[in-house]
Structure formats: structure tokens, C-alpha cells
Design a protein around this nucleic acid. Structure first.
Length: 637
RNA sequence: GGAUCCGUGGCUCAGCAUGGAUAGAGCGUCUGCCUUCGGAGCAGAAUGUCGUGGGUUCAAAUCCCUCCGGAUCCGCCA
């Protein structure tokens, strides 16, 4: 439709205005959806733009162009008429052929409707979740996981090959703290309640350890544990087993929400892989990195970021990459990791297959993990080496992530610099503080992901017992439905905010099932599939005939048409929110259609067929959107 | 001190990239709609100095600057 409009406009402008320059782009960006469809289906403000060039009144230009276009079209073309109003040109489309085209397309593409091949098989790594393996996922970690999960799903549908990584930092201070506590027997002071998942209990132990350490300063001992973990194989094994069990427990949580991964990258494996040893010489060759000889940073390996405009104003534009004791800093490590992701550091990593995961769409995903031991005969697989990298990391790391990105620029890795994306998001906050694993305040607020799931489950269960007493007979089916509703509600709630918005954690919002929520989307598909199940098969040629298309029907058609453009723009901006908002608008349009357009008891056969096919393509489109959002599809609820 | 982000009805948020017609949703409040394909829905009402003040423009919630309020970052921690 837009292309037709562009063509008509271009033609008219060339005939009327005698201006040659490429106004293609100007025309392209001037086409918009009017505030209400009373003004037409599309409109353009091109007359305002041309007014400047031609030094003529916009109204006059709009009028002339509109007249010209009206002469170039007839009632058989896709655009049937145009009107000029207050300088705008409004376009009215011929709905029957438009609908026929759209119907044919959606029916043909089916579950691929909305997808495109922009990625052309290029590869992207999406790294998300990446929590320290000493605690359960809290609601903020879940936001991270869901943003990453949706971006992965979106990229897949834009023709990219996606690799989802979860970085497990088993070598950090947090793990050392926990291990210190366990070696001291402090875990015995924390009761594991009957319904505590392993990671929830570990999280309690971890915050208990922090409390002890804050009271009596024994951080030296933690440092010793950190060193022991690196050099004493038995200590390493002990630590890794605990972390592994915690990760298994974290994975269970992720799966409840439909989140799956391809690869678990362990920090200890990375450290051993020689990745840093590969990276350091690369940096040393660059004129922007050097070993500092004097000043406060003497003896350190330093990045000279001051040469970049972006860092010029910093108080201290240089950044330590290697400490005077020879140990690389976190940022240095992250640069190395980023190089590995792009395939620029080989890293001697071995991997093994863990299991197959299945998500709510019944899609399989192999889970692999990096490993420190290989069982003979096991397959190995190499990860990394992608064209683009998206790291989902909280907003508090903006500055550090910028350093990582700009380090690539200093290494003249322009392409990798352009293709590094830090998906930065704000935190989910408790009423008065941020959630932190150290203080364990997620516990009091019941803000860990499993608890939120349980609380939402309870609300959904209550609702379904009231609405569907018949399901008392079939508790297994009911449980499946309630699980779906729960996952849908929480997933949608955590993606419907923009990344820059700090979400205030209030359980009433998370568990809400009405209005702008996941279950609302599900419900629209339930309505549609109920109609479909009661409708005889539609023959694709049978929606001709004489009938009027109502306002609500037109609105639904126009919404359905937007899907591919929406999928594309959400990938470009790394904003799952765009899909969520669109899906909500689409469901609303359907609900309005549903109220006013009877399908099964339609006044005529041709009308019944037309409406039936509209329901059909709505169902296809909506299900595709739900897949992208990771919301389960059910045919009753 | 420097940097980034945020401020939109009573509450929670979209919209800002690429300025354009009447600033949109949801919750809450009020009024209607179940002999009607499933009411987790729909129709309607009330509620707005788009933080403040200036600038650019034919046109500003959107771009630029000031100030106010809030968040985050600025380590040889991760």
C-alpha cells in the first residue's frame, strides 16, 4: 500500500511541480497513519515539506497533488480516492482487493507471516541472564532474561541465526563469599524450608554470609578462598559442583517462563582458555594502550580513552586494564570476551551437550555448556564467531560497556564496534530500594521469580475456578492452562515497559489478568479459535459478493497488515515492547470486531465467509506474535 | 564536580529516533451492554499548564538551552 502511494505521489509531483531531485526518501518518510481512519487509511504531510522548496502554500500544493492523483486513478485501483485537508493529503483504499491480497499473503505465509530475511543467515549472539550462581533469579534478573529471550526470538524472525549465551561467573567474589560460608559451616545455620528450591536456599545462605562478613571483617579469608578456587583442584571441584547445582536450579526457573539457552559459558573455563593471553598482545600492539611508568597508575596496563571525543571530558580518561599485580580487570576481561564472541580470539574452550530444552511453542533447543573435563567419545562444538553481539546488562554498567565497545574502536575494529550492542535496561525496584542478592531483600518482598510465579498462579487459579467450574473434572488440563496464563501474565508485564523505565515491583500489577496484560492477548485467540472450530472450512474464493465492510473490520484489516513492519522495527531498535504494544492493539481491534460483527450468524453467506477469513488470518497473525513474545497459545482458558 | 537516563490525568505507563490534524492506553471512579460465536470482553463519561522558563519552526510532548526534582555511573571491585 505504501509503495503504491509513493508511486502515485512521485508521479503527481513530477507532473505538477517540475522538481527533479530525489525526493523518494522525503516521500517515503512523509507517509503516516492518520490520527483516525476517518481521515483515510494513510496520509502524507508532503505538501508542508514541498511548501518550503516551492515557496507556495501547503494547502494549495496538497490540493493540486490530490487532484492530479485523483485523475491518475480509477475505482479499480488500490487507492480509490484522495482528499486534501488543511495541507494534508489523505488516501482512501479499496478495501476488497486490499483484503484479498492480504488474506492470500497471510494464508500463504502462515506461521511465517511477519518474518523477513534481513539477517540473511548472519549470526548474532544474545547474552542474557548471566547471574552469579549463588542465588535464585529475582524479578529484575527475570526482566533481563525476558528482554534477551524476546530479542533472540525477534532476531530469529528477521532471518538471523541466533546463539543465546548465559555467562556463569563462578570465579567471582560472590561465589567465593558463599564457598567461604559453607566451608565455615554457616550454611547449617540457615534452614532449608520444605518448599525452598535449592537456589532459593543458597540465596539465603549467601545473604547470611554477607551479614556475618559485615559484622566481623573477614574478607581476607574470602580472598584466600578466591585464590584457592583457582589453584587447588579439589577446591575448584567443590565450588563448581555447588555452582552447577545452583545453575540447574536457575534453569528450572527460566524454563517455567519459556526461556531457553544454547550455551552456558563458565567464567572459570574462559579464564583457563587462554583468551586473555591472546588478547593482551593485540592490545599491546595498539598505540592507545600502554604500560604506565609513573603516576598513580604506575605498573599498570592502561587504555588511553582520552583520544576519543566521547571520553574527552572525563576527569580521568584512562582506564586500568591490568593491575600492577598482573591481574586483568573486569573491563579487560570483557573486552577479551567480546573479541571471542566475534571470533577474534580463538580461546581453547571445550563444550559438551547437556540436554534438549523445549519451550512453550514446542520448539527444541540444544543446551550446551563449556566444560573443564571431557568424557571420551563426547561431541564437541564451537560457539562464538558471530557477526553481531547483543549483551543484556543493567543500566548501571553503561559506562563500562561503553569502554568495552570503544576499545574495539581503538583496535580499529570498526565493524565489530558497530555490531556490538549493549541492551541496557533499568532495574525492577522494591518500593524503597533496589533488589540485591547481597542483602537478600528479594526474600521479604517475595520478589524472586518463582515466588512471583506462585503468587500469580494463585490469582489465575482463583479466576479459573470461578469462570470454569467444569474444569474441576479435569485438573490436569486446568493446571496446564493456569501455568500458561501465569507465564503469559508475567512475561507480558515485564516486557511492556520501555527499557529506560524503572519498573516498580507491585504484585497486584504483575498478577493482573485484565486490561493491558498477557491473558488479554490469549483471550482474543481463544475467541477466534472458538469461532473457527464452529465454522465450516472456508474456500479462499468465496469471500466475494456484495456486503459492506464495517469500520471495526477495516480497522482490524489495517492492523493485520502492519505486522511485518513491526517485526522489523523491533529488531532494529532492540525493543520487544514494540511487539507487545502492537499485539495489544491487534487484540483490541479484534475484540471490537468481535462485539459488532457476528461471524457464524452473519446476515449472508458471503459476509460469513468474509468475516470467517478475517478471523482466520487474525488467528495466524496473533499466534505468530504470541510466539515472539513467548506467550503460550491455548484454545481455551 | 563531570556523564547518562527519567519527569505525560488520582495511580501505572506508551508516544520522542524521522516535529504535523483531536496527546493515547491500562488501573481506579461513574453509566450502560449477558434469551447474543466464551463478559479475562465491549460502548460511553469524568479526569491533562506533556516538570519549569526560554529558543528554533508555518507547526514542539517530540529538536536546542536554563533551572527544578528523581535514578544511575565516574576503583589497581565484579
Amino acid at each position: 500500500m505504501e509503495k503504491t502511494i509513493e508511486k502515485l505521489l512521485k508521479q503527481a509531483i513530477q507532473q505538477q511541480m517540475e522538481i527533479e531531485p530525489d525526493i523518494g526518501e522525503l516521500i517515503h518518510y512523509s507517509i503516516e497513519i492518520p490520527p483516525t481512519f476517518d481521515f483515510g487509511e494513510r496520509s502524507t504531510n508532503i505538501a508542508f515539506k514541498l511548501a518550503k522548496i516551492l515557496k507556495k502554500s501547503p494547502m494549495k500544493i496538497a490540493e493540486e497533488l490530490s487532484n492530479e492523483i485523483n485523475q491518475n486513478i480509477d475505482n479499480k485501483s488500490l487507492i480509490v480516492k484522495t482528499e486534501s485537508v488543511k495541507g494534508y493529503i489523505n488516501f482512501f483504499i479499496n478495501f476488497k482487493p486490499f483484503f484479498r491480497q492480504l488474506y492470500t499473503r497471510i494464508k500463504k505465509e502462515g506461521e511465517k507471516y511477519g518474518e523477513n530475511t534481513d539477517g540473511n543467515g548472519k549470526r548474532i549472539i544474545v547474552e542474557h541472564t548471566s547471574i552469579n550462581p549463588v542465588k535464585p533469579l529475582h524479578i529484575g534478573n527475570l526482566r533481563n532474561a525476558l528482554l534477551g529471550d524476546c530479542v533472540a526470538r525477534i532476531y530469529k524472525r528477521n532471518g538471523w541465526e541466533v546463539e543465546v549465551q548465559n555467562l556463569i561467573d563462578d570465579f567471582g567474589r560472590q561465589v567465593a563469599t558463599l564457598i567461604w560460608g559453607i566451608l565455615k559451616g554457616h550454611h547449617l545455620e540457615v534452614v532449608r524450608e520444605i518448599d525452598d528450591k535449592y537456589d532459593v536456599w543458597l540465596g539465603k545462605v549467601y545473604s547470611h554470609c554477607n551479614k556475618i562478613l559485615d559484622e566481623e571483617d573477614m574478607w581476607d579469608e574470602v580472598d584466600n578462598v578466591m585464590i584457592e578456587m583457582r589453584h587447588n583442584p579439589e577446591m575448584y571441584r567443590f565450588m563448581r559442583n555447588i555452582c552447577q547445582t545452583c545453575v540447574d536450579s536457575n534453569l528450572e526457573t527460566a524454563w517455567r517462563f519459556g526461556v531457553t539457552y544454547n550455551y552456558l559459558v563458565w567464567e572459570s573455563d574462559i579464564s583457563r582458555s587462554g583468551i586473555w593471553e591472546e588478547t593482551l598482545p593485540l592490545l599491546e600492539k595498539s598505540p592507545f594502550f600502554h604500560w604506565e611508568k609513573e603516576g598513580p597508575d604506575a605498573g599498570c596496563f592502561v587504555a588511553n580513552l582520552g583520544v576519543l571525543d566521547e571520553f574527552k571530558d572525563k576527569k580521568n580518561p584512562s582506564k586500568v586494564f591490568v593491575r600492577s599485580n598482573g591481574i586483568p580487570t573486569y573491563v579487560a576481561h570483557d573486552v577479551a570476551l567480546q573479541l571471542w564472541k566475534f571470533g577474534l580470539a580463538k580461546a581453547n574452550l571445550t563444550s559438551r551437550s547437556l540436554m534438549k530444552q523445549r519451550n512453550e511453542a514446542e520448539e527444541l533447543r540444544d543446551l550446551w555448556t563449556s566444560t573443564d573435563y571431557v568424557v571420551s567419545g563426547e561431541k564437541d562444538k564451537k560457539f562464538g564467531k558471530t557477526d553481531r553481539v547483543c549483551n543484556v546488562i543493567g543500566v548501571e554498567q553503561n559506562f563500562l560497556q561503553e569502554i568495552v565497545r570503544y576499545s574495539l574502536k581503538l583496535l580499529s575494529l570498526e565493524n565489530e564496534f558497530e555490531n556490538s550492542y549493549h541492551l541496557s535496561y533499568k532495574h525492577v525496584s522494591a518500593p524503597h530500594a533496589r533488589f540485591s542478592g547481597r542483602t537478600g531483600n528479594w526474600l521479604q518482598e517475595r520478589a524472586w521469580a518463582d515466588a512471583v510465579f506462585e503468587d500469580t498462579y494463585a490469582v489465575a487459579f482463583k479466576a479459573i475456578t470461578k469462570k470454569r467450574p467444569d474444569l474441576d473434572e479435569n485438573p490436569i488440563k486446568r493446571e496446564k492452562i493456569v501455568n500458561s496464563i501465569t507465564s503469559a501474565a508475567i512475561r507480558y508485564w515485564l516486557i511492556k515497559f520501555s527499557k529506560e523505565t524503572e519498573i516498580k515491583f507491585r504484585i497486584e500489577d504483575a498478577t493482573s489478568l485484565e486490561g493491558d496484560t498477557g491473558p488479554f492477548l490469549m483471550y482474543s485467540t481463544v475467541r477466534a479459535s472458538k469461532i473457527m472450530s464452529k465454522l465450516p472450512k472456508i474456500k479462499s474464493s468465496s469471500y466475494h459478493g456484495t456486503f459492506k465492510i464495517t469500520k471495526n473490520e477495516k480497522n482490524l484489516i489495517l492492523q493485520l497488515y502492519r505486522c511485518p513492519e513491526i517485526v522489523r522495527s523491533s529488531a532494529e531498535s532492540f525493543q520487544p515492547l514494540i511487539i507487545a504494544k502492537y499485539a495489544y492493539d491487534l487484540a483490541s481491534s479484534f475484540n471490537r470486531f468481535y462485539e459488532t460483527s457476528r461471524v457464524i450468524n452473519a446476515e449472508s453467506t458471503s459476509l460469513k465467509h468474509f468475516r470467517g477469513s478475517l478471523v482466520q488470518i487474525f488467528l495466524i497473525t496473533m499466534q505468530n506474535l504470541l510466539h515472539i513474545l513467548g506467550i503460550p497459545i491455548v484454545d481455551e482458558m
